[in-house]
Design a protein around this nucleic acid. Structure first.
Lengths: 108, 108
DNA sequence: TATCAATATACGAAAATTCATATATATGGA
DNA sequence: TCCATATATATGAATTTTCGTATATTGATA
C-alpha cells in the first residue's frame, strides 16, 4: 500500500467517514452508509468503488446487498492509522454513528 | 485538529514527504527540503505555508533560514499517524532521505 | 419472464487543487 | 546604502477531483 495513495483516499469526507465506520472490523452495506452519511446512492457507491480499487476495502454480495469491510490484505499500519483516528476524533463520527444505529435498511 | 483537514494535507506528495521527514522531531529548513525532494523553492514554500496554516508544522526563522518542525500543538494521534507511516513505508522516503543526508545548503 | 430493490457505472459540468512564473519581503554583509 | 541569499506570496493556466443525473447490472420474487 502506497502511503500517498492511501492518504488520497482519506482526503474526502465521504471516504474518510466510511472508512472510520469500518475501522473496527464491522461490515456495512451500501444502504447503511447512505443512511449514516445521508448521501445519494451513486455518491456512496462511487467512493466505495475507489476504495475497493485501491485495495482498502472489500465488497461481498449477499443477496441484493453488498457488504463492505476493510480489505483483508490491508497492511497493519493502515489499519492502525484508521483505528487511531477513529478513537481520537469521536466528534467527527458522532452524527454518522447515531444515524447508523437508527438505520433500518438492512435485513435480519 | 480536524481529521479531514489533516488527511487533506497528507494527500499530496510534496506535503506527505515533507511531513514524514519531519515526523521524528527534526527541524529542516526550506532549502534542505528543496534538496531532499528536488523541487522548486516556490513549490516547497507554498506547501509548507499550507501545512503551517493548518497547524501541522511551525516555521522558525534563524538568520536567513526558516526551520520547520512539527507544530508543538499537533495532537498526539496525528503525530502517531506520521510516525507509524514513516516507519511502515521506508521505501517511500528512501531517495529523499539519501538526498537530505547529502544536502549542503544549511550552515553549521 | 417481468418486475422490483440494491448497487454499479458512464458522462459532462462544476469545483477544487496544483503548478510555473513573476515578484515581493526579510536578513546579513560589503 | 546596496547587493546577494533565503523565503514568501500573487496570478492565471492547467490538471485533478467531485458531483448530479441518467442508465446499466444483479439477484430475488411473483
Amino acid at each position: 500500500m502506497n502511503p500517498l495513495a492511501f492518504y488520497k483516499c482519506l482526503a474526502d469526507d465521504t471516504r474518510l467517514q466510511s472508512l472510520l465506520l469500518l475501522a473496527d472490523g464491522r461490515q456495512l452495506c451500501v444502504c447503511e452508509l447512505m443512511d449514516a452519511l445521508q448521501l445519494s446512492q451513486p455518491k456512496v457507491s462511487r467512493h466505495l468503488a475507489e476504495l475497493r480499487e485501491c485495495g482498502i476495502v472489500q465488497g461481498e454480495r449477499r443477496g441484493r446487498w453488498v457488504y463492505y469491510c476493510l480489505a483483508p490484505g490491508l497492511p497493519d499500519w493502515a489499519r492502525e492509522v484508521l483505528l487511531t483516528t477513529a478513537a481520537a476524533a469521536p466528534g467527527y463520527l458522532k452524527t454518522a454513528r447515531r444515524r447508523l444505529a437508527a438505520s433500518t435498511c438492512t435485513p435480519a
